[in-house]
């Protein structure tokens, strides 16, 4: 595997969080996700989403966008890394939902930096799950809304 630049801490080897030790409102951490044009092309290839608005400047402007924008699904798929690394098990995310509220324009040179933070929004002891609510912003404005990941944890 290849290390990526946006991970600021070591994955795994950390004790998994336990449901009983959590409280609503607890912060699970923050991270930044840096998106550049090569990330968009890579995601297009990996996902099969070749919509031109994600790699063709003229086309994107022609349909009324500010320029090339990140795939909403790339942003959604990237920011959940904060949750999976905290949970210590990427398969523990049983439900994950978001609403795309603003596009993230990605410049031809340089990066668009998306900021993510997460906190415990709910705990369901019977189901053995907690809901992590993510706040996802770009240049101070929310780009995803109601971003919620339900994670299965041991009691």
């Amino acid at each position: 595997m290849t290390a990526r630049t946006e991970q600021s801490h070591e994955p795994s080897a950390v004790a998994r969080p336990r449901l009983g030790a959590l409280a609503v409102g607890d912060q699970i951490g923050t991270r930044t996700v840096e998106l550049d044009r090569s990330r968009l092309v890579r995601y297009a290839g990996a996902s099969g989403d070749f919509n031109r608005i994600h790699w063709d400047q003229e086309f994107a402007e022609g349909v009324g966008l500010p320029g090339v924008i990140a795939h909403g699904m790339l942003t959604m798929g990237s920011v959940v890394g904060l949750v999976t690394e905290w949970a210590g098990d990427p398969g523990a995310v049983v439900d994950y939902t978001t609403r795309f509220s603003r596009p993230v324009p990605v410049p031809a040179d340089g990066v668009a930096t998306v900021e993510v933070s997460g906190k415990i929004g709910a705990i369901d002891v019977e189901a053995g799950t907690t809901r992590v609510d993510l706040t996802v912003t770009f240049e101070g404005a929310k780009v995803l809304m109601k971003t919620q990941a339900v994670v299965r944890l041991d009691g």
Binding site: M1, P11, V33, G77, T84, P90, G91
Partner: peptide, 27 residues
Amino acid sequence: AVGATDPAHHDLVAARGLGYPDLVAPP
């Protein structure tokens, strides 16, 4: 592509250590 470095996506031993029969997919 989504920057998911969790070992369970990349490394069989890590995935099996979490109880999966093979590499587990990102969310």
